[in-house]
């Protein structure tokens, strides 16, 4: 059963007089509880896919379904509600609120959603139980990314969206972060979508969507995803 469905989705941007099709008629579906990677070079349209799925942007054509909801025709307000209850984001640059402590950054997200998880437990799960009262500037990049994962998961979302989650991290830390994402998602039964240009990450996914110039150039199902520890980069 498809949990997420993209049906011939198109997204155009107007830049000056020219029209750029960031996503040009793509269709795919994703099963619930799987780990998926959208792979492509810069400008392939992968971030647009993530934004569309995350409810931060709407397609100019085509339909997007998440579960029983069609998100492609939602209003801005409905999209916000969708975001707050169903989506967890992990960004390349963490995007923590510098004015709030680690614990508060997590609580901030929970404050607005329906079924939040315990914030301290979440932070313990990502190994930050000793950093609860530090401010983001007082911890390392890897730790900040873990806070951002904890923040995303604490909302108890259906879908975890990660945009180049390892982009700003060294390989060892990156690997740990990926492992954290995959392990917790698996345990909690979340659907994960990771957007990256790093082909090596693809090995750990159930499904890999290759994108090029706004189109899908191939979809590969992976019955035996590698453990993150086996990935070399």
């Amino acid at each position: 059963m498809a949990f997420i469905t993209f049906d011939n989705v198109e997204r155009e941007y107007h830049v000056g007089n020219s029209v750029i099709k960031a996503v040009d008629g793509i269709s795919f579906s994703i099963k619930k509880g799987t780990i998926n990677v959208v792979l492509g070079q810069s400008g392939a349209g992968k971030t647009t896919v993530l934004n569309l799925l995350g409810g931060m942007d709407s397609p100019t054509k085509g339909r997007i379904f998440v579960g029983e909801q069609e998100i492609s025709d939602m209003s801005e307000h409905e999209l916000t509600t969708y975001r707050r209850n169903r989506i967890g984001f992990v960004f390349q640059f963490y995007n923590l609120v510098p004015n709030l402590t680690v614990l508060e950054n997590v609580q901030l997200a929970m404050e607005i959603c329906e079924n939040p998880l315990d914030s301290k437990e979440m932070l313990t799960k990502v190994g930050l139980e000793s950093r609860l009262y530090n401010f983001p500037s007082q911890i390392s990049g890897g730790e900040q990314q873990r806070v951002s994962i904890a923040r995303a998961l604490a909302k108890n979302p259906d879908i975890l969206l990660c945009d180049e989650p390892t982009g700003a991290l060294d390989s060892a830390t990156g690997r740990k972060v990926l492992k954290l994402i995959c392990d917790t998602a698996e345990v909690m039964g979340k659907t994960v979508i990771i957007v990256t240009h790093n082909a090596l990450i693809a090995d750990m996914a159930n499904m890999v969507i290759h994108m090029k110039d706004g189109k899908i150039s191939g979809i590969k199902n992976n019955d035996q995803p590698k453990d993150t520890e086996e990935i070399i980069w």
Binding site: G54, M56, E76, H77, T80, T81, Y82, R83, R84, N85, I87, F89, N95, L96, V97, P98, N99, L108, A109, I112, C113, R151, K155
Partner: peptide, 16 residues
């Protein structure tokens, strides 16, 4: 702007 966008992405409503 960065803080605010983060909040927006996290699903805070406009009025919040």
């Amino acid at each position: 702007i960065r803080d605010l966008t983060t909040l927006k992405v996290l699903g805070f409503y406009q009025n919040e």
